[in-house]
Nucleic acid binder design. Structure first.
Lengths: 225, 225
DNA sequence: CCCGACACCTGAGCA
DNA sequence: CTGCTCAGGTGTCGG
């Protein structure tokens, strides 16, 4: 009861449409002719879309927090949450982004009063997992130049982003070499198709700390060792 | 405009008011006549207020957890969160406490289901810092005997609370022996009477890390120097 | 019972 | 010093 708006909200969201990310909510709704004229395959046709911005993701962006912080400047410029009038503003909106493969990703986009920041929440973690996003990688956002304003998302691994460079140290109770290694909340070396399972990495995390080590900008105390 | 709702919630909180903590939100708003009749200075006039309870703070209470656990017995007796009817119960309430200097501290007071405990969260860490609260110190809560029910907070250092016991290791650029040594964000060897104001915490932090050093259980990188 | 989604919160760092 | 941003946290709730 406290959260009764679970799916209802989404549906209304999708139906309201408006400027904020396009009208369709499933894709292939038919009006976004320009977008679909790209050719439906994964070819990187950048002609008709302008890049909005790029963010190099932080450990938190790809970690357990399940959210991507969108730098305020870009958020307000490109993804306006109409705080005026529209009552749904406070609750966030659902935005659809198409990736290079044509797959549509729906993220919940909202503003957090407490931290005064804009975030992508629901759906983001799936993107992280499927794309194997790692801290230091870049995420780019585009918008179709056409009237539909279709949004696109794209990511690329950081150059020299060592996928696992001496980081695969067994920290927990590693029982045996297995097919699926659950590290940093991401299934590494996973078999295609085996999504959520993960061979029961129960040992509480500690993982993040190691993860953070790699990308942290402030030297903290590194070098002291 | 972006932040217009920042304090809205809090204001509403305050206004709902009634008995719980008074009406003003900035201080010196003027309606709490009983309270201001105390005399505005730091003198401990305890006549018109009854002590509710006292707690000797734990390391966690003054540490990085940013919360004070209120013993359940006292919490339920003196700070009832009316779980009934009042919708705001789940989200906690904001309570205003006046300290001996007349400064009003606003804390979020809520119940944590996970730990089945009552806590003061938001705002608490600032109090800890400004008062230089340390584990073993005592915090006392009072309520005005008057009809306004104004709440008060007060703290005193534990007797024998070794402010610096072998902790005066010169870690930083210690220039010379001085009267007031600012270490860990605390005025050590400070002159009596410099209560809330004091040097405050001006020097940008770094100090906190050292502070944490003292109480931290994990050695982190101690000894690396 | 765990995990994802969510709404909070805080402090470091910086302008 | 002040204020803002945002990385890195928290507890809660529902599935």
């Amino acid at each position: 009861m406290l959260r009764k708006h679970t799916y209802e909200e989404e549906l209304r969201q999708s139906k309201r449409g408006g400027a904020c990310g396009g009208k369709r909510h499933r894709r292939g709704n038919g009006d976004n002719i320009d977008a679909s004229s790209f050719g439906s395959e994964g070819a990187c046709d950048l002609r008709a879309r302008e890049q909005l911005f790029e963010k190099t993701v932080t450990p938190s962006d790809v970690g357990k927090l399940n959210r991507l912080v969108i730098p305020k400047q870009h958020a307000e410029k490109h993804f306006p949450i109409q705080g005026n009038g529209c009552a749904a503003a406070a609750k966030g909106v659902l935005l659809n982004f198409e990736d290079v493969g044509g797959k549509v990703w729906r993220f919940r986009y909202s503003y957090w009063n407490s931290s005064q920041s804009y975030v992508l929440t629901k759906g983001w973690s799936r993107f992280v997992k499927e794309k194997s996003l790692r801290a230091g990688d870049a995420v780019r956002f585009y918008r179709s130049a056409g009237p539909d304003g279709q949004l696109y998302i794209d990511c690329k691994a950081r150059m020299n982003n060592k996928r696992n460079n001496g980081l695969l140290i067994p920290v927990g109770p590693v029982v045996e070499p297995v097919q699926i290694v659950r590290l940093f909340g991401v299934n590494l070396l996973k078999l295609p198709g085996s999504d959520g399972v993960g061979g029961g990495c129960n040992g509480k995390r500690k993982e993040m700390e190691l993860f953070a080590l790699e990308c942290s900008k402030k030297p903290k105390i590194i070098g002291a060792l």
